[in-house]
Amino acid sequence: MTETSANMPGVYVGLHDLIALEYRGRKVSFLPRQPVHSLLSGRFASRMRGRGLNFEEIRDYRPGDDVRSIDWKETARLRKPHIRVFNEERDRQTILVVDQRLSMFFGSRHAMKSVTAAEAAAIGAWRVLGAGDRVGAVVFNDRDFIEVRARRSRATVLQILAAVVTQNQALGVGRGLVSAPTMLNTALDHARRRAPHDAAVIIISDFDGADAATRDMVARAGAAQ
């Protein structure tokens, strides 16, 4: 923790503050609201059929089915070819979009919105990694953004947290910062272009500067999952 964050808890956040949230990340659930058979990746059932780990059903053999999936015991019992069908399980990529603009440098007596966003990002990143999935991020302020490519590693989470801390501790009044509401759409558009169609995109922001384009990007991101 830096001297600044140590002396001003709730105003700034330090790296070890975010690392310490790893345990809390284990208690968070990102279970989807979509039905079991929706097109999702990660620890979620998908419509992709294959020789996965999750058995779904035994049905009659159809032309084009993989002969390696034939259930010979059921075939012998019913005297007609039957196959075993599985739901393929894949990992799900998650992209965190973390707002650290000047508009976030405001809050209650408990904490600045920027600190709350940093803590939420840390809990989310630890949760995704704990589930065995890949996590990446787009961390942005009023001037630019830092992209961390999605990977399944502790080092990647630490890279995300370091980027958040760097931008968090750069905030402050009288530091020559100029509010740039349009950076919200810039960051969202970049995250949208980077994320595969079945990725989860988690936006942590006060949505200052949101407009019709913002709503359109968020809607398209939700429809793609």
Rank of each mutant, 00 (worst) to 15 (best):
A187K: 04
I95G: 04
G14I: 03
F106P: 03
V28N: 03
G222C: 06
D216V: 01
A76T: 09
R62H: 07
S108F: 10
R92A: 02
P181C: 07
D71K: 09
R24F: 00
P196K: 07
T75D: 12
A162W: 05
A137Y: 14
D60R: 08
A162E: 10
G14Q: 05
K80Y: 03
G172L: 07
A6S: 08
A195C: 06
R101L: 11
M48L: 13
T182M: 08
H82L: 00
E88C: 03
D208K: 05
G10C: 10
V135A: 02
T4D: 09
E88L: 05
A213I: 06
W72E: 01
D211V: 13
T214G: 06
S114L: 13
H197L: 12
L39F: 07
D198F: 03
P32D: 02
R152H: 03
F44H: 06
K80F: 03
S5T: 05
Q225D: 14
D91F: 08
T186Q: 09
E147N: 04
I160Q: 10
H16E: 13
V218S: 00
V139L: 08
G130P: 01
R33C: 07
A120M: 09
A221Y: 01
A45P: 12
Y61M: 01
A76N: 03
N141I: 13
V115A: 11
G64D: 02
L18W: 05
M8P: 00
A199Y: 15
V98T: 12
T2A: 00
T75A: 11
I202P: 01
Q93S: 03
E22Q: 10
